[in-house]
């Protein structure tokens, strides 16, 4: 029982990390209606960015993630403006190829600049984000706990922004009915740029939050992005709450399957869930209403 509880906690904490990666992906899909295959490479860039800021200026990753949010916002906005926007009316294939191309180019650029080596932020002198907290015989990784908390706060903040501001309302309206939003006087292109920027910006935060636990290497994005795709589809593409729940589910599945089935088959379990969801319930488990088609 104790093992099970510990596994459950581990799973939920891992879910927090998955959530912070998935929020941006679901945001971008829900609004711009583009599946960003380069999402993983954006994460890689954020992680290198945090690593470099730590190395050069000694910034704690939790501090570095704030400038990183804005840098990633800018990167996302540029990607939307110069690559996605010209292709908005193009076919699905073309949009997919565009983001796949960006993904390939960025991943290999990472390889050229940093080589295949694995870098970790030096956390030895850091006070927060390291170590474990024990509750009875159960332990929680402090860094993961922080990630978990921030992902909840981030979803709360995004929720508030989308519900109670004119801009946020316009973003939701554009996602649901582009033409009608145009008729309300919404500058739809600008909305898309903001949405893509926000989605990428979330990864800036993710880069900082993950730095204490995860090393960075050129293909780190691929490792996480496939999981993020699963989560986002599971939760219903475009749904923030769905993405969070999906992340927790996959985190727990990961943790339990790794222990009770086999460590190298845990991904098979959740990829199988993914395929089943795509085929039998393409709107996701929680995607019955808003945001999903």
């Amino acid at each position: 029982m104790e093992i099970f509880l510990q596994l459950l906690i581990n799973g939920l904490m891992l879910g927090g990390t998955f959530a912070i990666i998935s929020i941006g992906l679901t945001l971008i899909f829900g609004i711009v209606r583009v599946v960003n295959f380069a999402h993983g490479e954006f994460l890689m860039i954020a992680m290198y960015g945090v690593y470099l800021m730590n190395l050069q200026f000694g910034l704690h990753p939790y501090v570095a993630m704030l400038p990183m949010f804005f840098l990633m916002f800018a990167l996302g906005a540029v990607m939307q403006r110069y690559i996605i926007q010209p292709l908005l009316s193009a076919s699905d294939e073309i949009q997919i190829f565009a983001t796949v191309g960006v993904s390939t180019a960025l991943m290999n650029a990472g390889l050229m600049v940093f080589g295949a080596d694995v870098y970790s932020v030096d956390m030895s002198s850091a006070v927060v984000g390291t170590g474990m907290t024990s509750i009875g015989s159960l332990t929680i990784n402090n860094g993961q706990l922080m990630t978990f908390i921030v992902s909840i706060l981030l979803i709360g903040a995004l929720d508030w922004f989308l519900k109670y501001t004119f801009l946020g309302r316009a973003i939701r309206a554009t996602a649901q009915h582009r033409d009608a939003a145009l008729l309300m006087g919404v500058d739809v292109k600008k909305i898309y740029i903001i949405a893509f920027g926000l989605g990428a910006g979330c990864l800036g935060l993710a880069g900082g939050l993950m730095a204490p636990q995860y090393p960075v290497f050129p293909t780190v994005g691929t490792f996480f992005v496939l999981t993020a795709f699963i989560i986002v589809v599971l939760g219903g593409l475009g749904s923030l709450h769905g993405a969070f729940l999906g992340a927790l589910i996959i985190g727990v599945v990961d943790s339990l399957a790794g222990y009770y089935i086999a460590p190298d088959l845990k991904e098979v379990v959740y990829f199988s869930i993914f395929i089943a969801i795509l085929i039998f319930r393409p709107t996701g488990l929680f995607g019955a209403g808003r945001g999903s088609e």
Partner: peptide, 8 residues
């Protein structure tokens, strides 16, 4: 990575 970069 260069050839992959070129591809992309």
């Amino acid at each position: 990575g260069f050839h992959g970069f070129v591809y992309g």
